[in-house]
Each structure stands twice: as C-alpha cells, then as structure tokens.
C-alpha cells in the first residue's frame, strides 16, 4: 500500500491482526459496534483532520444511512451488500445537499449550520412514517451477502463488517494521500492562499464533505444490519457529539486516532451503561480534559512521544 510510512504500515498490520484475533477474546457484537463507530469517526476525521471543517451534524448521515439500509433490506428483501451501499448512497446524497448549504459559511458558523441542518433531519425522521417514529425500524433481517451467504451468525457478519471498515479506512487513506488530498490540506492550512493559487476551494470542500457523509452512511447502514434496528438515537445530535468525542480523544488528524477513540468511547459506554446519566457526565469530562490538556489525543500523544506520524 503506497502512502503509508514504515511505522504506519506496522500500525495497519497490528490493527488488522487485532481485528482478526479479537473475536476469539471479545464479544463479536461489541467489536462490530466498535468497527462501525470507528468507520464513522474516520469519516468525520476526514473533514476535521484534513480539511479543518468541524461538522456538528454527522449523525444525520449516519442515521439516515442506518434508516435506509434497514428499511430497504426489510421491505425490499435486497442483499446485505446492496443495503449497505444504499446507506452509503443516502449519506452521500444528503451530504451533497447539506454540504452545499453549509460550505457557504466558515469556521464556527459552519459548525452551527451543520448542527441545525442535522436537527432538521432529526425532526424529519421523528415525523416521517417510514422511520417508525419513536419505535424506529425494528427486527431488521441481516439478509444474505450477495444473496448467497447468510449473515445470521455473528462471526459471519463480523468478517463483512471488518471488510467494510478496512475498505473505508484504506479509501480515506488513499484520499488523503492523493493530489486531491494535498489540496484539502492546503485549504486547511490557508484557504485564501489556496483560492489565490486558483483552486476552487468550495468544490474541494464539498467533495470531501460528500465522501465523508457517504462513509458515515455506510457506517450507519452496517450498524443497522448488525443490530437489526435503526432508531432516532442514530440521527440525534448527541450522536454527532459522540463522533466528535471519539475523534478528539483518539487524535484529530491522525490515521489511527478515530479507531482508538471509537474503541475507548464504546468500551466506556458499555461499562458505564448501568450508571445512567454518568455516561453523559463522563463524556463531557473527557471533552473538557481533551480540549484543556490533551489536544493531540491518545494516538497524537503516542506519535509525539515516538516522534512519528500515526
């Protein structure tokens, strides 16, 4: 794989090994949740880490992807991979519209606009008949991969989820290291300069936004299949906050940070689930500690200690 440094190659190999070995130690369902959120966080990181855009509305893409995958596989009986791709297409289409609106403003306004637009999507989902309102879409079948391989067994679908995650992870890496990705970084460093060099920066930002929301939609669709349910939780703004938290904790703009962040946050939520609202308090505290004292995140700190880019 081009574009990875030596250390990063070791990191990728380690990650793949862990993905392969982990299900013999940990619950596959927990691991799949981590992988879905990891993909979601990597997609979010593509925007904030490499374009410098803070989207506070990524739950819209994740949640709508989840709804569409769940609905289509349940009502149309399509195959699993098509359902997931439809989730991605939904994310991309929605990202095109919302992104087109949001990139009209920059900085904090961009964050507020994405938040508000996602809130609109939330209210839409709350009222639209196909989402099932407060109940969500339940008893979603996992379907069959290519119409052949049944996915009812947790271990079978685990390999599908692992594949989807790795494919998304590598795609983001390719994007970041392509000439297109170099322009994105130039925009992040100094947008007026990139504009003066003749780049139509808004086009670049929009494409990045669509790619990111597409991957978020895929992550949401995959999650719907794994858990057999799509609910309002997936489109709620606290989900947008959660993906920000994962990425911030793992390390903004690092390759492995979002994955690490997803792992830690998901594990923490599983552990703290019995304590009710303490989950929220803990998330809030992590946010504040990260911002005040730990802005590089876990992976960023490790990278800084080892003097490598991870």
């Amino acid at each position: 794989m081009t574009g990875f440094s030596r250390v990063q190659m070791i990191g990728v190999a380690l990650m793949v090994a862990l993905i392969v070995l982990a299900p013999s130690v940990l619950y596959p369902v927990f691991l799949m949740k981590v992988l879905c959120f990891a993909l979601f966080a990597c997609a979010f990181n593509l925007l904030i880490g490499y374009v410098g855009l803070l989207s506070f509305g990524h739950a819209a893409f994740f949640g709508m992807g989840s709804y569409v995958s769940a609905w289509t596989i349940k009502h149309w009986g399509i195959t699993a991979e098509v359902a997931i791709l439809l989730g991605g297409a939904t994310g991309a289409a929605l990202g095109l519209v919302l992104g087109w609106l949001a990139i009209r403003r920059q900085g904090l306004y961009f964050a507020m606009i994405t938040l508000a637009l996602a809130q609109m999507v939330y209210f839409f989902c709350l009222q639209a008949p196909f989402t099932g309102g407060e109940d969500g879409i339940q008893q979603v079948p996992r379907g069959k991969l290519f119409g052949i391989v049944p996915l009812e067994s947790d271990m079978t679908i685990y390999w599908l989820v692992a594949f989807v995650f790795l494919a998304g992870f590598l795609l983001i890496h390719r994007i970041v290291h392509s000439p297109f990705g170099q322009v994105l970084k130039a925009i992040r460093e100094n947008e007026p300069r990139a504009t003066s060099l003749g780049y139509r920066t808004n086009d670049y930002k929009l494409i990045a936004f669509v790619l990111s929301s597409m991957l978020a939609g895929i992550a949401g669709g995959t999650k719907a299949l794994v858990f057999g349910i799509a609910t309002l939780t997936d489109v709620h703004y606290s989900m947008s906050g959660e993906v920000v938290l994962m990425t911030l904790l793992g390390g903004l703009g690092t390759i492995f940070g979002p994955v690490m962040g997803a792992l830690v946050v998901t594990a923490m939520e599983n552990y703290l689930a019995q304590f009710g609202a303490w989950v929220t308090v803990t998330q809030g505290v992590i946010f504040m500690v990260c911002v005040l004292a730990f802005r590089r995140g876990i992976i960023g700190e490790i990278g800084a200690k080892l003097k490598v880019t991870l």
Partner: peptide, 28 residues
C-alpha cells in the same frame, strides 16, 4: 479563559462538554 489563544473550535468543543456535564449531573 484558557482557550483564547487556541483555534475557536476548541471553545465550541469545550462548552459542548460542559453542557454534557451539567445536564448529566442534573439528570442524575
């Protein structure tokens, strides 16, 4: 006041965390 020299998004993230803490505590 520790945030004024940082990128403005950190203010948003910090106060978002603050909101979670306050709301979580009251919910508890």
């Amino acid at each position: 006041s520790r945030l004024y020299k940082l990128d403005h998004v950190y203010g948003l993230l910090l106060t978002f965390g603050l909101a979670l803490v306050i709301e979580g505590l009251f919910r508890n």
